[in-house]
């Protein structure tokens, strides 16, 4: 297994961008996890603050960790087009130059917080690309109680990502950003990814997580698994639950030595 630090100019973003990659021993034949960071993080954060490389080695998977600033991994209305970059340009590059797989069965996507929302959004908007989705400490952010109209917009999600007026944003029901709308638009015939969600009981996004879990559970055709635990919106939780996610994904009895404390 190897670790790569990739810096490349993106024609989509029109910007030099960074991606951290953990390569399985046989990348073409191994699952590949697109792992997304949270708001205020970058491409290096998962590798620095969790043992993701150790877990990846244990399960024999590749992990791709892009940096996407505060874009919510979307094509920003005012800003670079991260969704197009992540769904088109980057996988083409990774496949062509690093041999990473494009097959649905070998691709999964997951993330924390802003990245959890991003994983659900991209996974459900592009269900033909992924066989599994993981969402840690997040959900449909548009219904989260912290994001009410007329409040400040420190991450620019309302004004820059969604292109809405922050004083009078039209959030709910937006077909591009409201996860419930995206969920409702899923074609029943298409193969759907399995979805995993986890949230800590002391997490300020707990309600948002529960509301989202309810909707996902109610979908007639979407395989869905949800768990809560002690813990808050922090890296102790995410280090533990990326492991739980990988356990669930591989559906085996593998256990890892618990090295993180709470």
């Amino acid at each position: 297994m190897s670790y790569l630090q990739l810096s490349l100019y993106s024609e989509t973003l029109r910007l030099e961008t960074n991606v951290q990659v953990i390569l399985a021993a046989d990348p073409a034949a191994s699952p590949c996890l697109l792992l997304l960071h949270g708001a205020s993080d970058n491409d290096t954060i998962w590798a620095r603050w969790t043992s993701i490389e150790r877990y990846a080695n244990r399960y024999g998977i590749s992990v791709v960790m892009p940096g996407a600033h505060l874009s919510a991994f979307a094509d920003m209305r005012r800003g670079p087009a991260y969704e197009t970059f992540l769904m088109r340009e980057l996988p083409e590059f990774l496949h062509r130059h690093l041999g990473l797989p494009t097959a649905r069965e070998l691709n999964l996507i997951a993330g924390l917080s802003m990245g959890g929302y991003g994983a659900l959004r991209l996974g459900l908007r592009h269900p033909e690309r992924f066989s599994a989705i993981g969402c840690f400490s997040s959900g449909n952010l548009l219904v989260a109680t912290g994001f009410i109209p007329g409040t400040s917009d420190p991450y620019g999600w309302i004004s820059l990502v969604m292109g809405e007026d922050i004083n009078n944003p039209a959030l709910a029901g937006n077909p591009d950003f409201d996860l419930f709308e995206i969920l409702a638009a899923l074609h029943a015939d298409a193969p759907l990814p399995r979805v995993y969600m986890a949230c800590g009981r002391d997490d300020f996004l707990l309600n948002c997580s529960r509301m989202t879990a309810e909707r996902l559970a109610a979908h007639p055709a979407l395989p869905f698994y949800y768990e809560e635990s002690h813990g808050a919106h922090d890296w102790n939780f995410w280090d533990r639950y990326v492991k739980h996610f990988l356990d669930w994904y591989t559906d085996t009895e593998k256990t890892l030595t618990e090295t993180t404390t709470d």
Partner: peptide, 13 residues
């Protein structure tokens, strides 16, 4: 050097 930029609200190199 990686750090959190208060102005940009993100990690920066």
């Amino acid at each position: 050097f990686h750090s959190l930029s208060p102005a940009l609200h993100t990690q920066r190199r």
